[in-house]
Nucleic acid binder design. Sequence first.
DNA 1: ACCGACTATTCCACTGCGGTTATATAACCG
DNA 2: CGGTTATATAACCGCAGTGGAATAGTCGGT
Lengths: 101, 101
Amino acid sequence: MPVDAIAVLAEPTRRRILDELRLADSSVGQLVEKLAMSQPAVSKHLKVLREAGFVTSRTAAQQRIYSLEPGPFRALDAWLAPYRRMWNRHLTALERHLEES
Amino acid sequence: MPVDAIAVLAEPTRRRILDELRLADSSVGQLVEKLAMSQPAVSKHLKVLREAGFVTSRTAAQQRIYSLEPGPFRALDAWLAPYRRMWNRHLTALERHLEES
DNA sequence: ACCGACTATTCCACTGCGGTTATATAACCG
DNA sequence: CGGTTATATAACCGCAGTGGAATAGTCGGT
């Protein structure tokens, strides 16, 4: 399911966008400023993120405010689950203690 | 840290390799058979996975047995952590109940 | 209805990556 | 040492994706 969700995350710029949106919903213009990149580039990445379900946009006047959607993140977490079981078997005593908290 | 770890996982073939190795350590030849792909292709993917720390290989006669390493998976999990906090705020009552188990 | 602000789309050049074929290296065996 | 098996590397090709510049679309204000 997260089939190509991971591929979407492979792009550093897209991860930066997600980092920004995690802190606050943003308009395209705000992202352009933060990322110091051309507006078309940002819009194109947003399109990819949108189609993969990572973000949604609501219209506010001429701006479009983007915000995160948890779905694909949860899917990625689910993909990771079987491996998590594996690495839990590799816990050292110290790590096992930290795991308690 | 998982900087390009995610990019490494973006490749479907590499995820298939990881899936196989999760079930059992395997030689290159065994992976070639499972994946129905040319041996050089598999070797190249293994090189990428090795350099990203996802797998290690031990030599057994002419064969090289590959096995998983938990490190990068944990790093990915760490990258996901801040987003996990986000989607936890979106839990419904039902989900919240299931989360208890 | 026109203008200005904001965003999306198109076109193009470039780069990088995955796959195959061919070849090199390494290890075991007689 | 010669031959065979097993894996890695090299060279090449085709394609997909990214970024910029230019262009089109959308919406509110006057």
